[in-house]
Design a protein around this nucleic acid. Structure first.
Lengths: 342, 342
DNA sequence: CTGAAAGCGCTAACAT
DNA sequence: ATGTTAGCGCTTTCAG
């Protein structure tokens, strides 16, 4: 038993117009008189008509789908950073009448590994890549000539349309905040230093110090290319304190690293913020539950996703395949893990 | 400039057969001779042919899509519990040649709110619901007569196909472990007690105590219907210790609650596991990074998703619309937060 | 075991 | 401003 849903023919018949007219109304193409539009729209509502995706796709050579690619590592991150970005993309996709097909990819994509299924099967009109993905995969994707936008990552050797966080500015904001609080020995710790977002935060840190005529001390910079985990935050802090005893403030590459640092500090009887001020980056939603709540740089993750989808739709609909870029702003979220130095 | 991809016609022409035959081979229907099959398959590979989803959908009245519904609260949870379930679903969907459309819904779905878009537009062949979603939404979904499977939740007033965690057994395992370690005053704490998964864990707890002839002391049970957050774990533990001073072991409704409990215990100078043994539930991936690493009940989240998708495909392909249920097993994951009582 | 042909529901030229 | 109509690429009877 199959329920029969109304088709464009039913709408056309009921509204006394041709299917072409209904189609034109749906896609607001052609010049249709306001009365006809109203009439057709009313009939559509009455019949609860929804155009068939398959039929539209077949006739128009568009799928109405967007592919969303993220590494499973990133997607499973505890801070739900990319999950939020996805939510923003999904939200905006809704408004533009797209479905989003989410797929995760391994972070060690090798020659011969197959592309995401929706690419091979051409089931998408455009691709959003969230965060760093393997270079080879990205290159192969770009070769497909499918509209593509990268979020929160800049590939090193070629240009792509992208939406980025203003990481340098974030780094400056965080560091200036600590400088304004009277700190001089400000450390920077992080993992994944080869991720453009992280290295940009470090650049912001250095620039802020420079601007305030504070000498950059490499012994205060403790980075690695390890995964951004609490554990690695813990270890980085450990290494930092081995080299350096007189740190009074730490700027962590992201919140997870900061939480790791927090644990190290607690375990070693440093009081935050009395002994050490600590600033994170990302504004993970659980930060405010920490003791003390973490001062951090707030990143509008949902907005990042929204902007990314808009950019992609833009590219899909435009003739010229220009490379377009957007930067989303960040701001300092003042909480209790930082304190003026006495 | 549009790249032209091969169609079924191209395959048919190159293989010297009709398009019907190619179609039959693709869907392995009809009785085609092995040689023909081989020939067609070879041609498909040569041409890198992928059937068009739209065309298939239009002709067959199937979409090849599965809808995945989860509340945004659950999806954004820090433990990535439902993210992992989704990954399992996606993985298995791949094998069955389905795409998964993920949508989040608010946890306060009200009368008049619209159904997920893919339901209204009939862009899916079946639905997977992950975790508790609003009753009204679930009811409306069921009325649609679309194949549906619920993961990790039992609605109270009607029957649905579902895949559940063996929560009762998990509760028994956790509690027995503590009993075997010589604990008598074993507490149970949790939030979201109206979620069937949590209340079942409590049932397991009670049953294990019963089986060991330990009297159930309501003062040792501290539950609420608050969200499963670290903060609420902290508070629950606080309330527990106000009522009760001689607890030696705590079984927490899930790992997040357990981490909150851990913080309370640390803040109040209880040593884990020397003073208090602590068991969680879920096996969130970050547990092993805690100090001490958390003993917990391991839930195979990916498998849960895989099983759910299999069940759904089963229902989609079967004539009789029987209600089917699966239970995924759990096991005790022994780490360092529990210790025999001296 | 294989093929011919009639649609599936929509879009997009082209008419009018 | 609206209608006519030929496909889009596939599945699916029905014949042979």
């Amino acid at each position: 038993m199959q329920i029969l849903y109304p088709t464009i023919k039913d709408v056309a018949a009921k509204a006394n117009v041709s299917t072409a007219t209904v189609s034109h109304v749906i896609n607001n193409k052609g010049r249709i008189s306001p009365e006809t539009i109203k009439k057709v729209l009313k009939t559509i509502k009455q019949l609860k008509y929804h155009p068939s995706r398959s039929a539209r796709g077949l006739a128009s050579h568009k799928t109405g789908n967007i592919g969303f690619i993220v590494t499973s590592d990133h997607f499973l991150k505890t801070e739900a950073f990319y999950t939020r970005i996805f939510l923003g993309v999904e939200f905006e996709a809704h408004r533009h009448d797209y479905y989003v097909l989410l797929t995760t990819t391994k972070s060690d994509f090798k020659k011969g590994d197959s592309l995401p299924r929706f690419v091979l099967e051409q089931s998408i009109d455009g691709i959003i890549v969230a965060g760093k993905i393997p270079k080879l995969l990205l290159e192969t994707l770009c070769e497909q000539k499918i509209p593509l936008v990268i979020l929160d990552y800049i590939p090193k050797y070629f240009e792509c349309s992208s939406v980025l966080i203003d990481n340098v500015r974030g780094g400056i904001l965080a560091t200036n905040h600590l400088i304004e609080y009277g700190h001089k020995n400000i450390a920077f710790i992080s993992g994944e230093i080869s991720h453009s977002s992280i290295s940009d935060r470090l650049r912001g840190y250095k620039q802020a110090l420079n601007d305030s005529n504070i000498e950059i001390d490499e012994k205060l910079i403790e980075t690695s290319d390890d995964y951004l985990s609490m554990q690695n935050g813990y270890k980085a802090t450990e290494r930092l304190f081995k080299k350096n005893k007189n740190v009074t403030a730490i700027f962590a590459g992201n919140d997870t690293i900061a939480i790791g640092a927090m644990q190290y500090l607690k375990d070693n009887n440093f009081n935050i913020p009395n002994d050490i001020s600590l600033v994170g980056f990302d504004d993970a939603e659980t930060n405010s539950l920490l003791t003390p709540p973490l001062t951090t740089i707030q990143v509008p993750k949902i907005d990042l996703g929204i902007e990314g989808l808009q950019l992609l739709v833009n590219i899909i609909n435009s003739e010229n395949k220009m490379i377009k870029k957007s930067i989303v702003p960040v701001e300092l979220k003042l909480r209790e893990s930082t304190k003026p130095r006495l």
